[in-house]
Every structure is written in structure tokens, then in C-alpha cells.
Design a protein around this nucleic acid. Sequence first.
DNA 1: CAAAACATGTAATGAGTTACATGATTTC
DNA 2: GAAATCATGTAACTCATTACATGTTTTG
Lengths: 182, 182
Amino acid sequence: MATNHTKYAILGVLTIGCRTGYSIKQMIDGSLNHFWKISYGQIYPTLKKLVEEGLASVKEQTQEDKPDKKEYSLTSDGEKALRDWLAEPLESVPKEKNELLLKLFFSRHQSLSTTLHLLEQYKKQLKEVYATYESIEYMIRDNNPEDVDAKYWLFTLDYGKRTTVAALDWCEDTIEAIQEEE
Amino acid sequence: MATNHTKYAILGVLTIGCRTGYSIKQMIDGSLNHFWKISYGQIYPTLKKLVEEGLASVKEQTQEDKPDKKEYSLTSDGEKALRDWLAEPLESVPKEKNELLLKLFFSRHQSLSTTLHLLEQYKKQLKEVYATYESIEYMIRDNNPEDVDAKYWLFTLDYGKRTTVAALDWCEDTIEAIQEEE
DNA sequence: CAAAACATGTAATGAGTTACATGATTTC
DNA sequence: GAAATCATGTAACTCATTACATGTTTTG
């Protein structure tokens, strides 16, 4: 059975200085976006549930320069829940659905030029993805040079970069292979 | 807005000799499993809808050696729908959620040895994934040596193998980096 | 005779996205 | 004064999984 990791993603982000629903969303969209995503429709209900379960606590903060906000922090139970989840064995490797590969699989029904166009499109998208990884990397290196977390954050980015480069290489080789038939 | 590709996956598989819900499931689980998955809860309702939309037709087949079955085939409208979808531009690159990376991101809260164990687990899983890719590859090469489809099928497998190798390399390097700190 | 393979379907549930709804404050 | 940023939340909807429900035929 698949456990719901969204809860733990929020628990984790609460440990790195993001205390409001709004800043949790920002953090995940910014620095975890290559392997996680989340919507407000998940964040606010989960935050509420976390408090009900005793894993987090809230304090309503009145701000003079900005709208009021609710500040969440982990309780000791919450910290324990996070650590327990971290030590749990992994479920199976995620099998992402990939539209490009689905289309390529059925590309006999298409002209070679349309297939090449598809691959060029994908290559362009991958290059953009790679560029965003690099910009996140610079951001992390600049903002958290001595942060104990940063080391792990850079590992996850390295993963994204390496698999993206492998996909890019494949793209180029596949384009070449198809061009030879034309 | 995200289009529902499941419909086209079924349309596509109907072109390669899988004509029943059961065999569609088998084909996707077997040969498309590295980039697509599907359940009977999607297949049978979709097949029904395809017929309603005039993209496929059914014939009830009585079999003497096996249970009765419904044989589906694409109509010319169905073939057109498939080709139109193939020529449509790609949506954005899929961002898979990755439990290993989520855990690694928050691994400051864990001992180095537990983190190493996590990475070793993942490495083992990746090796298994790679092995299944290889076995699918041999199956395709053996069963469809002259098939016009097979060329594209092997491209998609190559993608899976290359990105898996990149992930494996990353795993090893990251394990090494963490071991140096111990 | 039991298990595996063949075959089709529905209902309940879960996870997540998107649209909707509101409002303060700051910056241009 | 408009747009951007900060801030919180709900309701409807979509997509997909899982459990349920049933039945035949073959193979060991």
C-alpha cells in the first residue's frame, strides 16, 4: 500500500524555516520542484490535519506590514513522525508517465519529420529543465553556504541534472538514428 | 490544460494486435511499463467510451477453448484521432515525484548510516529496474525482428536504460561522498 | 482438484488539480 | 490606480487505484 508522502513533505519543509502555507508552497515550487509538487488545495487541509494529530502547532501572527498569517511549527511528536518516516524503507521506484515516450512508441503511424519534430521539442524542453536546475543550484550555493541542509539539497539537484543530461544525450542519438533513414 | 492521454494509449495499443481489454492490460504492463501504466478500472470504461465516440468498434467473439471475449478495432475516425494526437505538441516534461529524493532532501535529520542504507536500497531497486528493461528488450528483439513498430519500441527502452544508468552512477557517487564524511 | 491464466466489469476511495472566493499590503 | 506579492481557504472535478464481483478454461 502506498503511504501518503505529502504529509511528510510538509513536515519536512516546516523544519527549514517555512512556517506558513504560503511559504511552504513557495519553497516546494522553488527548491523541491524537480522531484515534488504541491497545491494550496493540499497544503491548507494537511496543515489543519497536522495540528489535529498533534504533529504541529499554530500561532496566529498579526503583521503590520503584511497580511496576517498563521505560523506553524513542529511539535516533538511531529519531529518524531518525520524521523520515523525517513527511516522507513522505500516503496518501489516511481514509474512516471511520459507523453514523449508514449508518442514515440506509436510513431510508426507518423512521418519521420513529425517524429523528429517531437524529439526536437523534447530536447528543447529538457534544456530548459536543465537550466532551471542550474539556477536553483546557484541559489542554494549563494543563500546557504554553511547550511547543514544544503549538502543534501545539492545531492538531489545533481540527480536531476544527471538524469536530464542522459535524456538529452538519448534525444540527440535518437534524432541522429532517425535522420539516417530519411 | 492537461489532455487525457490514457485514451490515446489504448487507441495506440489497439493498432498493434491487442484487441481485448485483457490483452491491452498485458501489453501495457509488459512492454510499455517503463513509461505508462493502466488499470482495468480505466481500460473497460474507456473502451466503452471509445465505441460510443465512434473511434472503435466491438465484436463479441465466442471462443471454444477460452472464455468469450470482446474484440475491439479502430475505426477510421479512431485512426485519425490517434494520428492527430501524435502530431500535437508535447505538454511540459513530466515531473515525477520521487520518494528517495524527498527523503534525501531532509536527511540532515537522520544518521549518515541510515541515509547510506536508503541510497543502497535505491541502488538495488534501480538495478532491478535495469534488468527488467533488458529482459523487455530481448523479448522485443526475439518476437518482432522485422516489425516496423519494434524500432520505436527499442528507442523508448533505450531511454529507460540510459536514465537508469545515470541514476545508478549518481547513487554510487553520492554514497561515496557521504562515506567520506563518516 | 487446485492454481493459473483468460476474460469483463463496477463501486468506493484516494490523491491531486483547478476554479472559486476573499482580502491586505506594497510597489510601480 | 493597477499589478504584484502576501495570505488563507473551500468546492467541484478529474484521474487513477483498489476492492469487489463473477465466471470459464487449461494446466499441473
